[in-house]
Design a protein around this nucleic acid. Structure first.
Lengths: 288, 288
DNA sequence: GATTTTATGTAGTATTATTACATCAATTAC
DNA sequence: GTAATTGATGTAATAATACTACATAAAATC
């Protein structure tokens, strides 16, 4: 994010450190930012009961070129700014408040990742996955559930897929890998000793290894290619929440990539899998 | 949304119905909208190889006052417009595009749910969970991974926790439930026959049953209380993606609720669990 | 209470956008 | 095939808007 991105937030937090006149302007803006984006410097000055240069100076205080530029930043930050700020839960929060905070944090994390994901790497991972003879998902702890989820998704592609969360099984499977196998290693930190060693074993055995992990971690040095994701650890204070959602979504992206690579015919196959569930259900919900 | 809100989208859809010169301008804008918000009418005209009034006319075509106003609408629609609209992936999408679409859809789903969650129900579920003698998470298929994830989260609370994705095991466990047990049943559709029956068994055995499922589904009638979530099925065409993220996040909310209910002392306990992982890791990453 | 510093406003200047009009190209009518 | 009309585009003047340099007023410091 560029420095002056969350202009509205900046404006309200910096309110105290402004001059009296500049503060008047800031308050008028905060009072109705939408309106403010439509005003000329003259009208805004008038409403704030200050002179035009004062408005101009306020703008420059926030590191923008001038008033028109300021309005544009304002417009941007209104849409994207206020919501979705990763907030820590407070011990006194009511259900409504912490529910909102957790959802907002989840959204903020996904949004942050959305912009950071490297499409070239995604493409590359999809290349490997769609050519794999066998796919193995390895994840321990919370990543174990992610691995299981991935298995449940990739089995639809008519490739043998396994998921493990037990280090011993992983180790055995890794050693037994052959050329054509693709191993996806899931680790939030990329620093778990077992995981790193298992990745190495798999690679030595001839498998392509893909890590979904933190940037510049020991694990990402050890694999064929790394999909690097940054989780804002501040909200994951006591358990992994954000990092796991990010991994899951990224795996959704990879699965989607594989589907697209397979072409349209393949989508019939997927539809038939979904259809096979119908008999296990009550009444409606067939959805084409 | 006001008429001229999705300016970028409008711009690309209306591209064909524009004059030759105006189209040139539109293309320059679409090519780099961010950049365009920073240009003067003169520079934009130059880059588009048209005259300034042409640019001005284009702006008016989209029902805005003038060029500066246009830039502001553009800025807004960049932030709010494209994103967070649940878009289907197209077979011709490049990696960058489908990555963005999937993340955006995930965000859109979470955002939609965020506003629909009933805090009273959350509160109630937290009440049950924090008083439970034992917690059982049941989920089949993709919900199986969610159940496993939940187990991994709730085991930290010093309560016996089990997770199952096998209907037979679920059934046995359900029948063996006793007063004081809490069963959380995860089902996207709430219509899987097995799941519904298992929920009934558990309740008859004396357990409190909580469903995380679709509103007004057979399952939600069968349980002690239901946390109802609506997944936008349109993006989950071939596999459950959004619905699963929503369930996970909702379980994060419940876990957080339990933590808060336990009070500050309990947070030391959580910290010590996290600390216990340190030895399995390489070097840094202790985080307090 | 005098002096310096900081804040704010005034008036002129520069930039930027808009309008009115002219020219050119394309289409249609003859 | 040419003339007339319509629509598209550009030129140049005008108007609106924002910016700068400077002056004045207020506050803070000595």
């Amino acid at each position: 994010m560029s420095p002056a991105d969350n202009l509205l937030e900046l404006l309200s937090t910096q309110l105290d450190s402004l001059n009296r006149s500049e503060r008047k302007v800031a308050q008028v803006i905060l009072n109705d930012p939408q309106e403010a984006t439509g005003l000329s410097i003259a009208s805004l000055a008038e409403r704030s009961e200050v002179s035009e240069p004062t408005v101009n100076r306020l703008c420059r205080t926030f590191g923008v070129k001038g008033f028109p530029d300021f309005k544009i930043r304002l417009a941007q930050s209104m849409a994207t700014g206020t919501p979705y700020i990763s907030q820590s839960v407070d011990i006194n929060d009511a259900a409504e408040v912490y529910t909102d905070k957790i959802f907002s944090s989840a959204i903020a994390s996904l949004d942050a990742t959305r912009r950071k994901v490297n499409p070239t790497m995604v493409e590359k991972a999809v290349d490997f996955l769609s050519q794999a003879q066998q796919i193995l998902f390895f994840g321990m702890g919370a990543s174990g559930a992610v691995a299981q989820d991935a298995q449940h998704k990739f089995f639809r592609f008519n490739i043998p897929v396994v998921a493990h969360n037990d280090p011993l099984l992983m180790r055995m499977q890794a050693a037994a890998c052959r050329r054509g196998d693709v191993v996806v290693v899931l680790s939030f930190t990329g620093r778990t000793k077992d995981t790193i060693e298992i990745a190495r074993l798999a690679r030595e055995a001839g498998a392509v290894t893909i890590a979904v992990t933190a940037p510049d971690s020991p694990l990402s040095d050890e694999v064929s290619m790394a999909l690097e994701i940054v989780a804002p650890e501040d909200t994951d204070v006591y358990m992994p929440m954000q990092s796991r959602l990010i991994q899951l979504t990224l795996l959704d992206v990879l699965a989607t990539g594989v589907i697209l690579r397979r072409g349209e015919d393949f989508q019939d196959h997927l539809r038939s899998i979904k259809q096979s569930l119908v008999d296990t259900r009550i009444a409606p919900q067939v959805t084409d």
